[in-house]
């Protein structure tokens, strides 16, 4: 088994593991971590695709590599936004939870508090 295929299998395992974390862990921060695991698993799949595209004197296809770099930066920005939301929610309510009914009391002054 080549190292590329091995990395691809790790990627597949990471996607599964991260997905489990996203579904099973109720804490937002742990979910964000799990999202990052899925993300890196996806990037590894790009990675083996790149490695298997070695040609023209290059050890790996540059196009998927560039996509991974773009993806890593976007994933970071998404984590930052999600963390900021989680922290703000914690400050406001004293807990960080995604429960749909968390404080869904109807607002008493103007439902549309714009």
């Amino acid at each position: 088994m080549s190292s590329a295929t091995l990395a691809g299998l790790v990627g597949a395992a990471l996607v599964g593991l991260g997905l489990y974390g996203v579904i099973a862990d109720p804490q937002p921060l742990r979910k964000i971590l799990a999202f990052n695991l899925i993300g890196s698993g996806v990037f590894l799949v790009f990675g083996i695709v790149a490695r298997k595209g070695a040609a023209a004197g290059l050890s790996a296809d540059p196009v998927p590599q560039a996509m991974v770099i773009t993806g890593i930066v976007v994933a970071f920005a998404a984590s930052a936004l999600a963390v900021a939301l989680t922290l703000r929610l914690f400050e406001e309510t004293g807990r960080a939870t995604l429960r749909p009914d968390a404080g869904t009391k109807p607002p008493d002054d103007g439902a549309d508090a714009e």
Binding site: P28, V45, A78, L89, L98, R99, K105
Partner: peptide
């Protein structure tokens, strides 16, 4: 900035991130 809107936004973001990652996996 009401707490329930923050929770709603966070849930929205989570679903959207999940969606984008799965889309990206298919692209790969």
């Amino acid at each position: 900035g009401r707490p329930e809107t923050l929770a709603a936004a966070l849930r929205y973001l989570m679903f959207a991130l999940f969606g984008a990652l799965f889309y990206l996996l298919g692209v790969a």
